[in-house]
């Protein structure tokens, strides 16, 4: 069953994400992809688009490789680095290569990346880019020209449960749905109860919200996450990672327990393991244990 069809199903969805290589060596990417495939339990895998505004190989090339390896990809697409011509091109190219799932996001600001003074594009914003997929699906491009061969997409968007004021983020959720978003993946969450409140507030028939959950691997990585705006890690989780003899093993436990809780009410989980995807099968198995 395709990811798009699964969105209409009651199945608890599981997605993960991989980042393209910096350079042309795809071996690490392929190794991580293989461990996700062996899990068999991952419904789709996001490929990030120059995350943290730093240069890497193209997400679409890696999505195409995933497809060839029997993994359904979700192409992340930001409007930060491309104008409307290049964005439409990327969307058509994706379809030609068999990639239908796209996650449309605004992208990290270059201030935190490798090129702090780079010229940002944002010719279209997130809402407009979501709408653009719909326009292309109607058989026309943004210039009103008829397309020869019509693409089909399954369009996702991002939402941050920790954004504050939350009311405005919820307004954006509704706005993105009206523009054409079919599913959502959230920024990382730690506090299940808080997320549950948010989830119930935004609930909308037919729109799946997949909760982003990180794998905490070390006190250092946890410190990095905490330095990001809006990230608040509960004291108990912090203590568990900081006092663990094996922080990675503890991180796997925490991640599995979080997913177990999410399985009770949420639509799915998006596991962010940043290079440690090989542990995702274990995490998923543990999350199903009684």
């Amino acid at each position: 069953m395709k990811f798009k069809d699964k969105l209409k199903d009651s199945k608890f969805l599981i997605t993960a994400e991989l980042y393209p290589p910096k350079g042309t060596d795809t071996s690490a990417f392929l190794r991580r992809a293989a461990s996700l495939k062996s899990a068999g339990a991952v419904d789709a895998v996001n490929v990030t688009d120059n995350q943290r505004a730093s240069m890497r190989a193209g997400a679409l090339a890696m999505c195409s490789i995933l497809l060839k390896n029997g993994i359904e990809p979700i192409l992340q697409l930001t409007s930060r680095d491309r104008n409307r011509i290049a964005l439409q091109t990327e969307l058509l190219s994706a379809n030609i290569l068999g990639v239908e799932n796209v996650l449309i996001i605004s992208g990290d600001h270059p201030r935190f990346g490798e090129y702090p003074n780079v010229k940002m594009v944002y010719d279209l914003d997130t809402v407009q880019l979501i709408k653009t997929t719909q326009i292309l699906e109607s058989g026309y491009d943004l210039a009103g020209k008829k397309l020869n061969g019509i693409p089909k997409f399954c369009v996702g968007a991002a939402i941050n449960p920790s954004a504050d004021p939350q009311e405005l983020q919820i307004a954006m959720f509704r706005k993105k749905v009206l523009a054409g978003a079919e599913f959502f993946q959230t920024q990382i969450i730690f506090d299940i109860l808080k997320f549950k409140g948010f989830f119930n507030r935004i609930k909308m028939k037919g729109i799946k919200v997949i909760a982003g959950v990180p794998l905490l691997t070390s006190p250092k990585f946890m410190g990095f996450l905490q330095s990001l705006p809006g990230v608040e890690i509960p004291k108990e989780t912090q203590n568990r990672i900081n006092s663990a003899a094996d922080p990675l093993a503890e991180g796997i436990e925490i991640c599995a327990q979080t997913i177990k809780e999410l399985r009770k009410f949420a639509d799915g989980v998006h596991i962010i393991a940043i290079g440690k995807e090989e542990y995702i099968p274990t995490i998923l198995k543990k999350s199903l244990e009684a």
């Binding site: 944002y122 954004a163 983020q169 706005k175």
Partner: peptide
Amino acid sequence: KGLVNGPCGG
């Protein structure tokens, strides 16, 4: 980011 239709999630 010059977003014209609403904020990012940040």
